[in-house]
Simulated assay, not measured.
Amino acid sequence: MTHEEISHRRLVSQKLYKTNTVSPQDIVYHMGAMQAQDYAMAKWAVGSRCTVAEKEIEEAINSGKIIRTHILRPTWHLVSAEDIYWMLDLSGPQVKRLFASTAKQHGYDDKKLDQINSVIQKLLTGNNHLTRDEIMQELNIQKSAGDLSPVIVMMNAELEGLVCSGKMKGKQITYALLEERVSKPKTKLTKEEALAKLALRYFESHGPATAADFSHWSGFSPTICKAAINAIKLQLNNIVIDNQEYWFGKDHTDLVNFCESVHFLPAFDEYLISYKNRESSILLDHQSKAFTKNGIFKPTILENGKVIGTWKRTIKKDHVTIETEFFDAVNLDAKESLFKEIKSFENYLGMKIVIT
């Protein structure tokens, strides 16, 4: 298997190879968790993998079928309601450990955070969905430069399984009680069962990928990740390339008749961000043009599994403008062929797109 074949297989496993007539929550469930700190781009990450419009993805989030919360690594993710509890039980403690020292530096120990959670629970009980600013106002926590109190308080409440994303209030994101959004399951997975489930979901939806890639995506140590892979290796295929062992799901029949494809992927898309080593998808010389060393990922243009440029959208009153920047020179005919693929984004937004 070559690096080109790896990128082709990743298109298949990430549901980017063909148009999928499935629901937004089905896409999120398949992917396990999708990074989502840029909310608008996170919705397009789902939309680029199925045929639904943005408003349908918004509805899936508003209805609680998809949850946006902090999970796995300490950043925002989209996760299906079906997975939220076991995934939170698994990754919540490790994320809390990562920001515990920051919380203490700002004067928040476990006792104080528990007291605040009790107040938040009373505020939100009865499907009362509030924005973070509204919650901070009720808690009498003033916004000030450099003060991470709002982040610490709400992330802790998420990781404790108290709150999650609520219904949008205009253009503002709200919080709601998790148990009022999603019923608690009657049984719990052991840590080993949950790790095995997470590993299987990752390699089936992101493979071919290495143990280091899984560690990068999940936030768990290489040792823990290798143990999880060992528990499920009979359910996966594997291959060694350049002394690296890659794991992937057994159902890759779409690859037999692989055809050319172009995608305009969102910022922070799983296609790049979920791997530690990205050279199968983007040349080393181009990586600094697509993402920064401190983790800022731009929207990218993908041709046959390879990143060939970046793009930027600007929403106007009655249309959306798209600016593109290609890494290498592209002739006019090739550009026009590439730009035909922006039609899916136009259908998703329900707005005319003008390429500048």
Rank of each mutant, 00 (worst) to 15 (best):
T314F: 14
H8N: 13
I342E: 00
L123W: 01
L198W: 08
E325D: 12
I141V: 11
D26A: 09
V95T: 11
H70V: 12
V95E: 00
P150M: 01
V52N: 05
M351Y: 01
K188G: 04
D213Y: 05
M155W: 14
L198V: 05
K111N: 09
Q121K: 15
S221I: 11
L78Y: 15
Y271T: 07
Y275R: 08
H3I: 12
H70D: 02
L162F: 04
V262H: 07
W76Q: 06
K191C: 04
A145Q: 09
L162Y: 07
K122T: 11
T19V: 14
H3R: 14
V330Q: 06
L198C: 09
L90I: 02
I355R: 02
A329Y: 13
E336V: 04
A60Y: 03
K43G: 04
K340N: 09
E134V: 03
H77P: 08
D83I: 11
I141F: 12
V307L: 04
A33C: 11
E325L: 08
V151N: 03
N331M: 06
T223E: 15
D254S: 12
K43T: 05
A211M: 06
T21Y: 13
V240F: 00
F214V: 05
K306Y: 08
A103T: 00
K289L: 12
K293L: 14
A227T: 15
T314M: 08
T125E: 13
K312N: 10
S13I: 02
L272Q: 10
I282G: 09
E59D: 09
F268Y: 14
S7I: 01
N331D: 14
Y17L: 11
V354S: 06
M351F: 05
V12C: 07
K122M: 06
N127K: 05
T324Y: 15
A227V: 13
I296W: 11
I6C: 02
N140I: 09
Q105M: 10
S63P: 00
T75S: 02
K197W: 02
T310N: 07
F268A: 06
Y39W: 15
Q172P: 07
V28R: 05
G295Q: 06
K169D: 12
